[in-house]
Write a protein that binds this DNA or RNA. Structure first.
Length: 276
DNA sequence: ATTGAGACCTGTCGGC
DNA sequence: TGCCGACAGGTCTCAA
């Protein structure tokens, strides 16, 4: 489920359990997730300290005292669980949950378990000198919540692209961290149709309408609000268009109906009457 | 180089 | 109840 806001929320939950702590035990229940963990994964992890836990797009990065970086991605269904000590959360002999693939025991006694039914996630140790060329991170677009992400940056990334703007937003090289839900949500907030060619928000005419800055601002605000909601443990995260096909558009003054279409094999939700 | 389609996995849900 | 297809918030690879 994780797009940038969910990954950031996971980072904040994991941070106090990891940073400053040492890996005491690392147990792998299988040899790979989406990719192999890599040679000596557990051995290289044990004994190192976590210096910092950061995020880049949808990736979590644990910087280690060994100078390696533990690079983690949650894929579609990855999640971490933190237990205060082994066998916590009720019965000490509770059967191992299906899809618990990695169990990290920290020096504090906290046990961090990675669970991922679909196994589209990944965990790898990357050496300091390999980080600059590590393919999954190389070429990622700007962080949408950083100061260097704005209308100009977005327009530059979209210039010349014939693909629909919705598909372009899912391209992590254009902007890092936006996924299928927040792409639809941001386009609705910006009043831009997901079917528009990406390049069309970067033209002079689009510039006169301020479309690229509007979309960049919409991306920033929808992600920021989602993080805030998660941080507040707000239960019913209400999307304005995602998974709401058939419902009335919530934009004030719009009497349109949300529809669902398929673009590049993914569902897109939007309001044809207020998104042009 | 860019783009769309298919592949990778398992679980869930709705329809018959 | 059981079976079956459609679908799920993400990449990655391959062929056009």
């Amino acid at each position: 489920m994780p797009e940038l806001p969910e990954v950031e929320t996971v980072r904040r939950e994991l941070e106090p359990a990891m940073v400053g702590e040492q890996f005491v035990e690392v147990a792998l229940r299988r040899a790979n997730l989406r990719r192999p963990f890599g040679r000596g994964f557990a051995r290289r992890l044990v004994g190192t300290h976590v210096l910092a836990l950061t995020r880049r797009g949808k990736f979590l990065l644990a910087e280690l005292s060994s100078r390696d970086t533990l690079v983690m991605h949650l894929g579609m269904s990855g999640a971490f669980r933190i237990d205060r000590r082994p066998g916590d959360a009720g019965d000490g002999n509770r059967a191992r949950l299906a899809h618990d693939h990695v169990v990290l025991t920290m020096s504090s006694g906290a046990v961090i378990t990675y669970n991922d039914p679909r196994r589209f996630g990944s965990m790898e140790l990357v050496r300091e000198r390999e980080m600059p060329t590590y393919a999954p991170l190389r070429g990622l677009g700007p962080e949408p919540l950083s100061p260097n992400f704005n209308g100009a940056a977005l327009a530059r990334a979209c210039a010349g692209k014939t693909t629909p703007i919705k598909a372009a937003l899912l391209d992590q090289h254009v902007v890092a961290g936006v996924g299928n839900i927040y792409a639809s949500e941001a386009l609705h907030r910006a009043g831009i149709s997901p079917r528009r060619r990406a390049a069309s928000i970067a033209t002079a005419a689009a510039g006169a309408r301020g479309e690229a800055p509007r979309l960049a601002a919409a991306i920033r605000s929808v992600l920021t609000q989602a993080i805030t909601r998660h941080a507040a443990a707000y239960r019913s995260s209400r999307f304005r268009v995602y998974d709401r096909d058939g419902a009335r558009c919530v934009r004030s003054g719009c009497d349109g109906t949300i529809i669902r279409i398929t673009q590049a094999g993914r569902s897109t939700f939007y309001c044809p009457s207020c998104q042009k």
